[in-house]
Structure formats: C-alpha cells, structure tokens
C-alpha cells in the first residue's frame, strides 16, 4: 500500500458529475422547460395552500348573487340590490299569473329565497373577481379548490400506477420465463378492454364516488403503459455487458435488479410518471363531469364544467373560462415540462 494511494483515498470526489447532475444542467439550459417547472411549482404551492386550508377554504359559501358577473364587467342589471328583493319578487310572482292574484305568493317567495340561501338581512356581492356560479359561490375559489382536487388525484394515481407498473415490469423483464408469461397474460387481459370502458365499468360497479375511489380506479388501471416500457427496458439492460459483468463478479439477482438496472431505468419512469399525471388529470375531469368521479360536496374542474354547460346557454361564461384556463395552463406547463425532462434525460437530435 503506497502512502500516496492512502492519501488520495481519503480525498476522492473532486467536482465530478454524475448523469443526474448532467441532466439537471442540460435541463436548466432549456428556458421553456424552466418556465414550465416554475409554473408547475406554483400550482403545487397553490394546491398545498389550499389543502392546508389557507386559501379557498370557504368556497362553498354563497357570497355573491346568483350568476354574479366578474368584477371587470360590472354588476348585472337584473340582480338588483338585495334590499328591494323581497317585495320585487312578490310583485313579479303576482304578475306571472294570468291576472289571478296568488294569496301565498309572498310566502313562497320567502321560502324560495331561504332555500337559495338569501336571507334578507345578509348583503351579497353584486360582482365577484371571477364571477359567481348559480348559487353565488365564488368561481375563483372554486377554481382553486378544483385545482387541488384534480392535481392531487392526478398525482396520487400516477404514483400508484408508476409503482405498480415498475414493480411488475421489473419482475417480468428481468426474470423472463413463466414470470414474464404470467404478467403478460395479466397485461393482455387489462389492455383488451379499452381504458375508458374499464374505468367506467369499475365506476359503475363501485357505485361510490369520492376522491379515494377515483385515485384507486385510475391507478389500478393505468399501470399498463409503464409496465410495458419498464419490462422492455429491463429486457434490454439484462443482456448489457455491465449487468453481465455484475453477474460474473458474483452480484445477486436482487442486487442486479435494483442496484444496477433500476438507476438506469428510472429516467424512463420519471418521464412516464409526468405523462400519466396529465393523462389522469384529464380522465378525472371527464369522470367528474359525468358524475362518476369525486363526491358531490367536492369541487373539481369536471364538476365546474358540468355546471358551465348549462350556464353557457344563459350567456354566463365565466365558470367555463375559469375551469378551462386553470386546466389549460397546468396541462400545457406539465406537457412542456415532460418534453424538457425527456430532452434533458435522453438527449437526441431534435
């Protein structure tokens, strides 16, 4: 043992850059990617704040008049000040009948107001920053809460799907033989049924809404794409020389699978995870729209779009705009982020 060797052994790592570090540096050079990352991070911050209850906690309170227009547009002429609401309603109702006065019209109007949450003593805003929905709930707060729901569902489902897909894919790709046959059979059964049909079928039988259900449904059916890719990667790497070399020096199967191959496959999984978040957010929106997704008391972009459908005919466009804008910005940013990730982790000629 030379003294020189001993001295250097103590020192070692001098500014060397692993592949992850190199990828990060490459990523940072992509301006579009960086901006997307910032936007996505901002959304995550909003989700966290909303989840903690710091913002948009009172989204269900009806603080505006029905269909309050956005602040920029000015108050709607038809929604007059609440002070004069009661007698006006009475007068309106009385006139609706063809000349015959309705003796209990006034009381009915009061009941109706009570159901709609308007008590004569409470004042309601004539306009809201982003408008109000049918019950006068603040659209902006709803959009924020909806972001929280949709993003959480997308993220959680994607993580579940990625975990299952990677685990199954690694086993199938590495071991081959009957293990591979079994997983392939499983995969072909799941993929024989189109994705949306499977989700709807499961939603039908479960007959139970809720965020957790949606996450489970999406995660348990969405692992197939990741499985196929991870399996192909493992099959490719298993015969690469560095894995063979590990075999020859005596590394065990588990060691080869997780210490050697997995770090070389994880960049594929990361990109797939990102893609699946987008896919699941879109799926959740469709499910919630149809009424099979999150519960009635939870707001999601899908439920907002559902309400917006009818509002549009009445000319009230702001809930549609809010939900669409919130979703479009996030999904665009996430998609661009995924592209940038892919380019950074696996650079090829563009």
């Amino acid at each position: 043992m030379s003294a020189q060797a001993a001295a250097f052994a103590a020192g070692a790592h001098a500014g060397s850059r692993g592949l992850w570090m190199l990828a990060w540096l490459r990523f940072c050079r992509d301006r579009v990617g960086l901006v997307s990352l910032i936007v996505v991070a901002a959304y995550f911050a909003v989700v966290a704040a909303s989840g903690m209850g710091w913002i948009a906690d009172e989204w269900s309170k009806e603080v505006g008049v029905s269909y309050a227009p956005p602040g920029a547009m000015g108050p709607d002429a038809s929604s007059a000040a609440p002070a004069g609401a009661a007698p006006q309603a009475r007068a309106e109702v009385a006139q609706d009948d063809s000349g015959i006065a309705d003796p209990i019209a006034g009381e009915i109007a009061e009941i109706r107001k009570g159901l709609a949450g308007i008590s004569p003593s409470e004042t309601r805003a004539a306009t809201l920053p982003f408008g109000g929905d049918k019950w006068g709930r603040d659209v902006l707060q709803k959009a924020v809460k909806g972001t929280q729901t949709s993003v959480l569902v997308g993220l959680a489902a994607a993580l579940l799907a990625a975990f299952l897909g990677t685990l199954f894919g690694a086993q199938a790709g590495y071991h081959g033989g009957w293990v591979d046959d079994f997983f392939n059979w499983f995969y072909s059964v799941f993929t024989s049924i189109p994705y949306l049909l499977l989700i709807l079928a499961i939603a039908a039988v479960l007959n139970q809404k809720g965020t957790g259900t949606v996450i489970l449904i999406l995660g348990l059916t969405g692992w197939t794409g990741i499985f196929r890719l991870v399996r192909a990667e493992y099959m490719k790497h298993k015969v690469r020389e560095y894995v063979r070399a590990a075999d020859v020096i005596g590394a065990s199967d588990a060691r080869r699978m997780f210490a050697h191959i997995l770090p070389n496959v994880s960049h594929v999984v990361l990109v797939q995870l990102s893609l699946h978040v987008v896919l699941f957010i879109k799926s959740e929106v469709v499910l919630s729209f149809l009424g099979f997704g999150v519960g009635v008391d939870t707001v999601s972009w899908g439920s907002m779009l559902n309400e917006a459908q009818n509002e549009l005919i009445l000319g009230k466009w702001w809930q549609l705009a809010a939900a669409t804008a919130a979703m479009a910005v996030l999904v665009t940013a996430f998609s661009l982020l995924t592209d940038a990730l892919r380019d950074a982790l696996d650079p090829r000629i563009k």
Binding site: V286, F289, A308, Q309, L312, I313, L320, T324, M327, L336
Partner: peptide, 18 residues
C-alpha cells in the same frame, strides 16, 4: 398542439356546440 391538447375535450364540445 401542446396548448390545444391541454384543453379538455369537454370544452371543445361545449364551445363548438354553443
């Protein structure tokens, strides 16, 4: 294309119908 993809199909249907 990226932006186009990020708008839910629901919106396309609703808006084009309207």
């Amino acid at each position: 294309c990226t932006v186009g993809q990020s708008i839910s199909i629901l919106v396309y249907i609703i808006v084009s119908q309207y």
